[in-house]
Nucleic acid binder design. Structure first.
Lengths: 339, 339
DNA sequence: TTGAAAGCGCTAACAG
DNA sequence: CTGTTAGCGCTTTCAA
């Protein structure tokens, strides 16, 4: 790889002059500029961004840390994020913690060592070590998405979950369902808690007693949905008449189980879930879902991060954005009410 | 951010000693090491990877350039790639050219400037400028996937496409179809050409004349599948009895169109396509597809890249891996043959 | 076992 | 308009 010095030698000028030509906003004699440009071409010179970053203390790279790269939800967030920040000249590094708190800390450290200018985190853990937490928020521009992290006082963006869950379950109730099960992800994340709360809200509202056996905790993946399906569908005497799946992947796994057992939705069992509107359209039957909007989450988070970057201040900007969601009725539930 | 110097001052040793403690493989007196470690903790010191990279000329970061971040196919390649390289201590930067040759060149330059140690490219363009091409292959470890790039003499990995396409279409023929249309992505990419060739192979084999109006070119996205569907389904007199969709996204769009027009698969029209086995399982009806295996593509490419990195040589390793594919029959085609 | 010092390639004063 | 030079933070001889 060629360096500034090589170019300078070739063009018979100083490194400073070459640097000036490249940066563009310095007065350079036309003839000199031409010679330098020529040398750059002749030598296949590509500026060394590493050296530049060391000097300027800016990498123009941001990071996003998601809990699961296999989940389209987070991929879409990352895409939207990338689209927003790239227009301001930033690049995006995507990493996945695979829902592992250890790995998450490791990756945050990697981001720190790579001296990224800022990062967006969809936390796998509920909290970080106090040192890292306070260090993070004081050193870097950070925005949290989807979940909040105890002790990390920064801006955050997520989608409304509790009310949406309540509406979903209320819809089931209105159709006469009373044995309503729920399959959800790991305990104790912001979203899990909110979705469970919404579920309980709706039950309470309908005076349906909450039943421990109807609530299954697992991960936000297909495996959990599948296992949940197997469990609930095999309940001889009191098989639930409806199931609420807490995310898109769980839904897929659950439908797989339903199919395998030879049952049908909604004839044998009703299903409601969180999901992607497009995906849900191509499933059979069309699902009744809380329409999630990862692109908006990414956009908001991106803009918030850019704002922090510009102010390049460590202002305690603890804005907490909660985006509204809506539910979309499909044909995945059956009414038990006889008119 | 603290620096080595801060730590050295705090521990009352030289920067060299701190560096030695961190690197680990140097003899340091136990007492000194303890003091240094203490200082590191006390100061929240995180090594500056940028400075390290400048000094060592290694970034331990690889890049992957895909044509479309919205396509699960490439996402899965990236994931597998990441899994492979991370076990060797590398990080992965993912970027998308959005099928834009200009943008692709821009991103390659970004990768070059960031001094990534190597990169995997799924080219959007058919060729690069000769200079960049030769420069690339001589400067960096590069592996191509999915498509080949004229003039870039490096290793490549892709999935068999031509024979697979032929089998797919032959299956339709065996069921009595003769009006078989095809919807495919941009002209002139390796995979497009191979899939079209396979389609033609099968027609020729069955002595069915190739018909220009039955072949639609577009992009590898839902839009194209949708438009293709609208076009073919509205052919009054000679609507094709079967359609071959060249990738997963086109299939989704096509099915959307079928649905909108009020027709059904396979009763009104048969469909075969390239796709993800899992996805295809949850579509209705179960699709007849060429089972693609992006994870393997990612793994092979990753291992090939690591091999080059280790030899850290610019050996002209032009291995060209073509992974085998297979077709999986579903219920998305209807036999026109009366037994 | 430790310290001093020379760069890695670049930018930005400062001086001419 | 152009050149000289001092670092950015780190690793690594070379001496001590």
């Amino acid at each position: 790889m060629k360096t500034l010095r090589d170019v300078a030698l070739h063009a018979r000028v100083s490194v400073a002059t070459v640097s000036r030509v490249i940066s563009g906003d310095y007065p350079v004699k036309e003839e000199t500029r031409r010679r330098v440009l020529e040398a750059i071409n002749a030598l296949d010179y590509h500026p060394n961004g590493v050296a530049r970053s060391l000097k300027s203390a800016k990498t123009y790279t941001l990071g996003v840390l998601v809990p699961d790269m296999a989940n389209p939800y987070f991929i879409q967030i990352a895409r939207a994020l990338e689209a927003v920040v790239e227009s301001s000249g930033y690049h995006l590094l995507v990493a996945s913690s695979d829902e592992d708190a250890e790995k998450e800390i490791g990756l945050i450290k990697v981001f720190l060592e790579k001296r990224l200018d800022g990062m967006v985190i969809a936390p796998a853990a509920v909290s970080l070590s106090p040192e890292l937490a306070s260090f993070l928020s004081s050193t870097l521009s950070v925005v949290l998405i989807d979940r909040v992290l105890d002790g990390v006082e920064v801006g955050s963006v997520r989608e409304e979950s509790r009310q949406a869950s309540k509406l979903l379950v209320r819809h089931l109730v209105s159709q006469g369902h009373r044995e309503i099960a729920m399959i959800t992800g790991r305990k104790l994340t912001t979203t899990s808690l909110e979705r469970e709360a919404g579920y309980r809200d709706a039950l309470q509202e309908a005076h349906i007693p909450f039943c421990e056996t109807y609530l299954m905790w697992g991960d936000y993946d297909q495996e959990t949905g599948y296992l949940g399906g197997k469990r609930f569908l095999s309940m001889k005497d009191r098989r639930p008449s409806a199931v609420f799946c807490a995310n898109n992947l769980i839904t897929l796994g659950f439908l797989h189980a339903v199919d395998e057992v030879g049952l049908r939705v909604p004839d044998d069992i009703s299903v409601v879930s969180f999901g992607d509107p497009f995906e849900a359209t191509f499933m059979t039957p069309k699902m009744t879902i809380v329409v999630q909007n990862p692109a908006d989450v990414g956009r908001f988070a991106g803009r918030m991060l850019l704002r922090k970057l510009e102010r390049n201040s460590t202002v305690h900007d603890t804005e907490e954005v909660v985006l509204p969601t809506e539910i979309r009725l499909g044909s995945s539930t059956r009414s038990l009410v006889v008119n």
